[in-house]
Every structure is written in structure tokens, then in C-alpha cells.
Design a protein around this nucleic acid. Structure first.
Length: 213
DNA sequence: CTCGCGATGCCCT
DNA sequence: GGGCATCGCGAGG
């Protein structure tokens, strides 16, 4: 496995080039309890201000400001009152595009991840879904804006991405994004590794009705 | 394995 | 005040 860190230039490309190219890459999370390494198996592209599904669609806000910054940084948001999700900012500064990390296989530190993901029945469920992935890697808003480009000698900060072993191109599949409705629903901007058991199940967008009071 | 539903708090209109 | 880039649980096949 190639443990060379990905460079800034890797992320400074159009999001639809970066997103599928992240499959098979290795995310390294350094925690006090030890390292966790995750091989990415499922991602989604969010194309900045032109994309109705993107948090950046309505322009710069306090929450999404990291997306408007330079590539190669973590954008972490809080959702459904309980969960965090982790994105990697890509494209040139100002494009506000990013890749949501949806699922992966934990290759190192499954025991550490399990201390937070104790309800997972199999190891392959530890990071099967974006909020599970963030929980397993102990990612919260404290890491919002963190630089994920490691020094050439290896990971130094809390989060970094290594080259890993990308799958053959014919094993990369694409389809509609999970849980995205409206005008952004039909874009096939979700990418995953065909047949991988850690990929999360597809769920179509469901508009919610207000609970009777 | 699938489906249905409630939890929960922050963001933005 | 509506909606959310979700998850875990319980019931049923």
C-alpha cells in the first residue's frame, strides 16, 4: 500500500474528477487512543454554488465558510441534531465544492473505532454511512477547517489522506446521491466501489411531514 | 433482509 | 418555524 500523502494539487481539481479518484485512498485519523486508518469506498460530490444539493448553493454563510476556502481541508457539519459528517474541500479557492465521505473500510484501529461505534454488529458497519464514518473516526466540528495534507514524511495533524491503492476504473460505479432531493436529485454524483460490503445502502430522498402537535 | 418511525439541535429564511 | 448530505430500533417476511 502506497503511504505517500496526497498533495494539495490532488484536491485542486474539479470536484467530479476528485470524487471518484478518492476511492481506495486511505484516511488517517490520529487520536489519543491510537491511529485509525480508513480505506474510502463511497463518496458524493457537491458542486458548490451551482448545485442545489450543496450547502454552498445559497452562498457564503458562517457554517459553510470552509467550503469557500482553499482545497485539501476538512469541512465538518452537524446534522439531524445528533450527527456529524465529514467532507474534503476541493477545486480552486472560491469554488466551494467538496466531497462527502460516505463510507469506508477500517483497516487499522477497529478496536478504537468500536469504543464509539459499539452498536455495530460487524466491523464492516463501523463506517457504513457518513455519520457512522465521522463517529468511528471521532470527527466533530473541532476538526472543521483542518488541513488534511500531510508532510511528505507522513501524517502529522489529526487527519490526513494517503495515496492508498485505488481500484481499477471498471470497479468504480456511480449513481444518484443519497438523500438529495429537488433539482439536484438526478445527478449521478455518488461514487462507490462495486460490490464492496462497506458501501451504505441507497436511500431516496424522503420529504418529511411535520409531526402532529 | 426490509420497512417505518422517532430522536434531536442547529442553520437559514 | 421548516427542514435537514442520518441513524438505530423494533416489527415483520
Amino acid at each position: 500500500m502506497d503511504r505517500t500523502p496526497l498533495t494539495r494539487d490532488f484536491f485542486d481539481r474539479p470536484v467530479l474528477d476528485v470524487a471518484p479518484d478518492l476511492l481506495g485512498r486511505v484516511l488517517v485519523r490520529t487520536t489519543e487512543e491510537g491511529p485509525i486508518e480508513l480505506r474510502l469506498t463511497e463518496v458524493e460530490a457537491y458542486a458548490g454554488e451551482i448545485d442545489p444539493g450543496s450547502h454552498a448553493f445559497r452562498g457564503l454563510t458562517p457554517r459553510n465558510s470552509v467550503m469557500f476556502g482553499p482545497p485539501g481541508h476538512a469541512y465538518v457539519y452537524f446534522t439531524y441534531g445528533m450527527w456529524h459528517c465529514l467532507n474534503l474541500v476541493c477545486g480552486p479557492e472560491g469554488m466551494a465544492s467538496g466531497v462527502l465521505l460516505r463510507a469506508g473500510e477500517i483497516e487499522v484501529g477497529a478496536d478504537v473505532a468500536r469504543t464509539r461505534r459499539f452498536s455495530a454488529r460487524h466491523d464492516r458497519e463501523l463506517a457504513k454511512g457518513p455519520a457512522r464514518l465521522a463517529t468511528a473516526l471521532d470527527v466533530d466540528r473541532a476538526l472543521n477547517g483542518a488541513d488534511v495534507i500531510a508532510a511528505p514524511s507522513g501524517p502529522s495533524g489529526p487527519l490526513s489522506v494517503l495515496h492508498g491503492t485505488p481500484p481499477p476504473r471498471d470497479q468504480v460505479r456511480s449513481g444518484p446521491r443519497t438523500g438529495v432531493g429537488g433539482d439536484g436529485a438526478h445527478h449521478p454524483w455518488r461514487f462507490w466501489i462495486d460490490g464492496d460490503r462497506t458501501v451504505s445502502p441507497y436511500r431516496a430522498h424522503v420529504p418529511r411531514r411535520r409531526r402532529p402537535s
